[in-house]
Amino acid sequence: MRLLFVCQACGARYFPPTAMAYPDGTPASAVWCSVCRAAAAARGIREPEALAAVAMLLAVRALNAALAARARGDRAARPDVRPSRPARTRRAARGPGTRTRLG
């Protein structure tokens, strides 16, 4: 499994390379996707180090949680589904007029 990040500029989800470096040697960002990172580099804006550390920490925690759930064999958590009303029985469907004291 790979780390999944959310771009803080455009909101896109992206998978950076596993080594956190692109084939041309430029480092991958934990904060911005490649398009937003290139735009920020063109404007001379550096990646905020604190934000990058937090993004990396959250991505690693999510990955570890997913791996632990897979190891336990958990399926996706499903809400407890219960009927909104009790099941109807034949007795309730017939109505009250079949046996009475007067009959």
Rank of each mutant, 00 (worst) to 15 (best):
R46T: 08
R70M: 11
C33D: 04
A40G: 00
L63K: 04
A55L: 03
A39I: 00
G25T: 07
A55D: 06
P27G: 11
L57V: 10
D74N: 09
A66W: 02
L58T: 11
R72A: 03
W32D: 06
A53F: 05
A40I: 00
V81W: 12
N64I: 14
L63N: 08
D74H: 08
L58M: 13
S84E: 14
R78A: 11
A55E: 12
A55V: 05
V54E: 15
C33I: 01
R82D: 04
G44W: 02
P23N: 03
A38I: 04
A53G: 08
A66M: 01
L51I: 14
L67K: 15
R78H: 10
V60Q: 15
D74S: 03
R72L: 05
V54W: 14
P79T: 03
R61E: 07
P27S: 12
P27A: 10
R43I: 04
A62H: 06
L58W: 10
P23Q: 07
R46G: 14
E47T: 12
S34M: 13
A62C: 07
S34P: 14
A50D: 11
P79V: 08
R75N: 02
W32Y: 14
A71C: 09
P48D: 05
P48Y: 08
G44F: 02
R61H: 10
G44I: 00
A28R: 04
